[in-house]
Amino acid sequence: MTASRWQAAWTVAVFLFILAPIASIVVFSFNADRFPSLPWGGFSLTWYEAILTDDTVRAGFVRSLKVSAIVSVLATFIGFATAYTDYRFNFTGKMPYLALAALPPTVPVLILGLAMLSFFSMVNLVGTLRAIIIGHVVICAPFAMALIRMRLADMSPDIEPAAWNLGASRWRTIWSVTIPWCLPSIFAALAITAAVSFDEFMIAWFVSGLEETLPVRILALLQGQVSPRINAIGSIVFFISVTLAGLAQLLATRRDRQS
C-alpha cells in the first residue's frame, strides 16, 4: 500500500515538473516585480501593457497568426489528400510514398532549418513569409495526415461504394460523404497544425530574415536580459497554443454516439 502511495506521489511530482514551467510563466506574468521570483511583488498588468505597445512584438504576433492560418489550411489539405490516398488506393511505391509523406517531423528542426535556408537561398526566398509557410507546411502536413487517417480508418469500407452505387461520382462522394465523415478530424488537423506552426521557431529563425515571427522574437529576447515581458508574451502564446491543442484533442477523440 505504501509503495503505491510513493508511486502516486512520484507520478504527481513528474506531472508537476511537466506543468511547472507553464504555471510559473502565467503566474509571474502578473507579478509587478521586475524580476519574476518570490516573494510576490503584487498583481499588475504592466507587462501586458508593455508588450501591447511593443511594435516588434505586435508585428511578430501578426506575422505568426498569418503564417499559422495559411499553414493550417495548406497542411490540412495536403494531409487529407495523403490520408485519402493511403485509404483508397494501392499502387507500387506506396511504401516509399508514405515514408516521404510521414518522415519530416522525425528530422530535427534545426537540420531542416539549415537545409531550407540553403535551399531557399538558391531560389531567393529567404527572408519572406512564403519561406516560413513552405517550411512549416512540410512539418505540419504529416500531423494532419495522421489525424485524418485515424478517422478514415473508422469509416466503414462500404460507405463510399454505397455513394457511388447511388449515382455519386467519386468527386461528389468525396464532397458529400468523405469530407463530412472526416470533418471532426479536419478541424482537429486545422487546430493542431496551426498550433505547431504558431510555436515553431527553428525553421522560422533560419529562413525568416527580418520577417520575425513571434517565437523568433521570443528567441531574440531570450538572448538578452530576463524580462517579465517575455512572461506576458509567453502566457499569450501558451493560451493560444493550449487552446488549439486542446481543441484538436477534443475534436479528434470525441467518440461518436453510434455503435
Binding site: 514551467p21 507553464i22 493542431i192 498550433a195 505547431v196 510555436d199 512572461n231 491543442a245
Partner: peptide, 17 residues
C-alpha cells in the same frame, strides 16, 4: 497538450525558475 505548445517559452520559464 505540452507536446504542441511552445517549448521555447517553457525553456525560458525554467531559466527564471
Amino acid at each position: 497538450t505540452p507536446f504542441f505548445t511552445s517549448y521555447l517559452v517553457r525553456a525560458y520559464s525554467w531559466k527564471i525558475i
